[in-house]
Deep mutational scan, measured.
Amino acid sequence: MGFKLLSKLLVYLTASIMAIASPLAFSVDSSGEYPTVSEIPVGEVRLYQIADGVWSHIATQSFDGAVYPSNGLIVRDGDELLLIDTAWGAKNTAALLAEIEKQIGLPVTRAVSTHFHDDRVGGVDVLRAAGVATYASPSTRRLAEVEGNEIPTHSLEGLSSSGDAVRFGPVELFYPGAAHSTDNLIVYVPSASVLYGGCAIYELSRTSAGNVADADLAEWPTSIERIQQHYPEAQFVIPGHGLPGGLDLLKHTTNVVKAHTNRSVVE
């Protein structure tokens, strides 16, 4: 069995187990497998329904001669939608809004960016022009300005110390501490036991640490421990890039980060 097929099978099995364990909360999309990078042309966006009122959005972007996937989250909030992270750029984010209108038909009224990198804030200006209120932590807003990236308009308070959590509509926002970046936030959907790890969490097929220019490698494993301790009931975990899975993604990420750190020390 090929690795790609095995990865998709694991996603399907995880979703099936969740649907059985929580039949009222989960209505997993039966329309197909989780979209992969090879299936999404740059400039297009796919939506994948995880649970009743919960979707991931998947886009792709060219970077350094390669094409990478990027995940975000959409959560229903009454007759409105909360968006977590842009679709990595203005063109993708405009396509995301169009796809949401086509498939869901509810307005996106608020959006949260989970850290300051372009795959999370690139497209904020498109959201703002569409009347979406954009939010991020003060740290993310400051770092985005320093980096020359787009800056969300509103500040999220109460997320300055490791372990801080605040309720934001249908989700809980959690600051686990520094990891992929010093400002990275985690998003949890309690009604569906869905954990969105953003770039602080890796997919299972990833074996290298990737972009760690703004990471705190020493603190990252401790931050992941905080996530595990705060959300032990999480059933569906979405990484910032690639295929979702279960809580095993947290341990896998820790292993990859520690291996990278150990290699760096040896070198």
Rank of each mutant, 00 (worst) to 15 (best):
L143E: 06
V187H: 02
Q103Y: 14
S205M: 09
A51G: 09
S62W: 05
V42F: 06
H241T: 01
A144V: 09
R167L: 11
A136R: 04
A66L: 14
K251I: 08
I224S: 02
I58R: 09
V257M: 06
E150Q: 05
T93Q: 00
L217Q: 06
D79E: 12
V54W: 03
D85Y: 02
L83P: 01
A218P: 10
D125W: 08
V189A: 05
S38F: 09
S205A: 10
S27Q: 11
V189T: 04
G163W: 06
R263D: 15
V187T: 02
S22R: 12
Q235W: 10
G43N: 12
F236L: 08
D164K: 12
L250W: 01
S62G: 14
Y175W: 06
E101H: 14
A87P: 02
R226N: 10
R128E: 10
G158I: 04
V171A: 06
V257H: 04
D29S: 08
W55Q: 00
T109R: 13
L6K: 12
S160H: 13
G198T: 07
L204G: 14
Q235I: 15
V266Q: 14
D77A: 07
K258L: 10
A179C: 05
P232G: 12
G105Y: 07
L156A: 04
G43R: 08
L81M: 07
L127Q: 00
R141G: 03
N262A: 11
V67I: 08
Q49N: 11
V187C: 02
L250A: 00
D119S: 00
V75H: 01
D125A: 08
A165N: 13
I40L: 15
A19C: 12
G32N: 09
R46T: 09
G65D: 11
L82K: 00
S160G: 14
V11R: 08
S30V: 13
R128M: 11
H241L: 02
G131M: 07
F174S: 05
T114D: 01
L156M: 09
G246K: 12
G123K: 04
V212D: 11
S137Q: 08
S181V: 03
R120I: 00
A144D: 04
N262K: 13
R206V: 15
R206C: 06
Y68M: 09
S56T: 15
N262C: 05
G43M: 06
L47E: 01
A66Q: 15
L250I: 07
T114H: 01
V146E: 13
G123Y: 04
D119N: 05
A25K: 14
E147L: 09
W220I: 02
V67P: 15
S27L: 10
